[in-house]
Simulated scan of single mutants.
Amino acid sequence: MRVLLVGDIVGKPGRNAFTKVAAQMKSEGRVDFIIANGENAAAGRGPTPEMANALIGAGADVVTLGDHAWDAKEMVAGIDLEERIIRPANFPKGSPGKGFVRVDTPEGPLTVVQLVGRVFMQPSYDCPFQTVDRMLKGMLSSDKAIFVDFHGEASSERMAMGRFLDGRVSAVFGTHTHCQTSDETVFDNGTAYITDLGMTGPKDSVLGREVEPVLAKFLTGVPHKFEVAKGKPTLEGALVDVDMKTGKAEAIERIRIEV
């Protein structure tokens, strides 16, 4: 099975790029399953349930969120209405929604898990390593094809997670920093890995935002409003080929598509 992993979707340009590319790749049979990170889909902030559902309607089989999951107050209640919208599994106890989902496919079930890092992030998050370890030894012990979105700031933390889960899951892919890395690989024990998928959004920008206000903030220290940039968007991510019977990854390919 070929799985498309889509880096952080930013604002309307990112949503438009995803809609165009996802629909085309699915209709042409180039991908079988799509996992998209939608945590910046609403003008660079967390999406409403309607917006996340629109990404599913556009071709995403699972939409992952991240540290901006609750930016839209409607998502607090709305996340439970669609099981294919997930938030990090190591959010504090009592958080709405859930951190993983199993989706039936013609080749068997595919499980998507999301975690959030703690380095340079909120200290209230539970340990992502211990959280996923418990899941793999418990509720996911019989699952074969498992894809893990590790939403984190520090490259070292994401790399450590990839090594920690090598041979235990099909793929570990980083999101959050919006900068695509070139370290895609399949580890020795069969886990595909990339530190960051990149960003799906306006190419001429600073992490999806207009350049001038960001520069002004760095130069003067004075707060500025960071609007989502306009212009030509790019979809960044990766393609992973997985053996659904064994859960082992066979290949990973980094992609960048200008729309």
Rank of each mutant, 00 (worst) to 15 (best):
residue 1 M to W: 01
residue 1 M to F: 04
residue 1 M to V: 11
residue 2 R to Q: 12
residue 3 V to G: 01
residue 4 L to W: 02
residue 4 L to T: 08
residue 5 L to E: 00
residue 5 L to A: 07
residue 8 D to H: 09
residue 10 V to C: 12
residue 11 G to E: 12
residue 12 K to H: 14
residue 13 P to D: 13
residue 16 N to Y: 14
residue 19 T to V: 12
residue 19 T to Q: 15
residue 20 K to M: 12
residue 24 Q to P: 00
residue 25 M to H: 07
residue 25 M to D: 03
residue 27 S to A: 14
residue 33 F to L: 08
residue 33 F to D: 08
residue 34 I to V: 15
residue 37 N to Q: 08
residue 38 G to S: 10
residue 42 A to K: 15
residue 44 G to F: 09
residue 53 N to C: 12
residue 53 N to R: 15
residue 53 N to E: 15
residue 54 A to H: 13
residue 55 L to M: 15
residue 58 A to K: 13
residue 58 A to S: 15
residue 62 V to R: 03
residue 67 D to E: 09
residue 67 D to M: 00
residue 69 A to Y: 00
residue 70 W to N: 00
residue 70 W to P: 00
residue 73 K to L: 02
residue 79 I to K: 00
residue 80 D to H: 01
residue 81 L to V: 10
residue 82 E to K: 07
residue 84 R to Q: 11
residue 84 R to T: 14
residue 85 I to R: 04
residue 88 P to S: 06
residue 90 N to L: 06
residue 94 G to I: 09
residue 97 G to R: 01
residue 98 K to W: 05
residue 99 G to M: 01
residue 103 V to H: 02
residue 103 V to E: 06
residue 104 D to I: 02
residue 105 T to F: 00
residue 112 V to Q: 04
residue 115 L to H: 08
residue 117 G to Q: 07
residue 119 V to A: 12
residue 119 V to I: 15
residue 120 F to E: 14
residue 120 F to R: 11
residue 121 M to G: 09
residue 123 P to W: 04
residue 123 P to Y: 03
residue 126 D to C: 02
residue 127 C to W: 01
residue 127 C to E: 01
residue 128 P to F: 01
residue 128 P to R: 03
residue 131 T to S: 05
residue 132 V to P: 06
residue 134 R to P: 00
residue 136 L to D: 06
residue 140 L to I: 04
residue 140 L to F: 09
residue 143 D to L: 04
residue 149 D to G: 07
residue 149 D to T: 09
residue 151 H to W: 05
residue 152 G to M: 05
residue 153 E to K: 04
residue 154 A to C: 09
residue 155 S to H: 03
residue 157 E to V: 08
residue 160 A to D: 03
residue 162 G to L: 03
residue 162 G to K: 07
residue 164 F to N: 03
residue 165 L to E: 11
residue 169 V to Y: 06
residue 169 V to F: 07
residue 169 V to I: 09
residue 171 A to V: 10
residue 176 H to L: 08
residue 179 C to I: 15
residue 182 S to T: 14
residue 182 S to K: 10
residue 184 E to W: 09
residue 184 E to K: 01
residue 185 T to L: 04
residue 188 D to L: 08
residue 189 N to L: 11
residue 191 T to A: 01
residue 192 A to I: 02
residue 193 Y to F: 13
residue 194 I to W: 04
residue 197 L to G: 07
residue 200 T to Q: 05
residue 205 S to F: 13
residue 207 L to T: 06
residue 210 E to P: 06
residue 211 V to K: 15
residue 213 P to V: 14
residue 213 P to S: 11
residue 214 V to D: 10
residue 217 K to V: 06
residue 217 K to H: 14
residue 217 K to P: 05
residue 219 L to K: 15
residue 219 L to T: 13
residue 221 G to C: 11
residue 221 G to Y: 12
residue 223 P to D: 11
residue 231 G to E: 13
residue 233 P to G: 12
residue 235 L to T: 10
residue 241 D to Q: 11
residue 242 V to W: 07
residue 244 M to C: 13
residue 247 G to N: 11
residue 251 A to L: 02
residue 251 A to Q: 14
residue 251 A to R: 15
residue 254 R to W: 07
residue 255 I to D: 10
residue 255 I to R: 12
residue 255 I to M: 13
residue 258 E to G: 11
residue 258 E to Y: 11
residue 259 V to T: 15
residue 259 V to F: 12
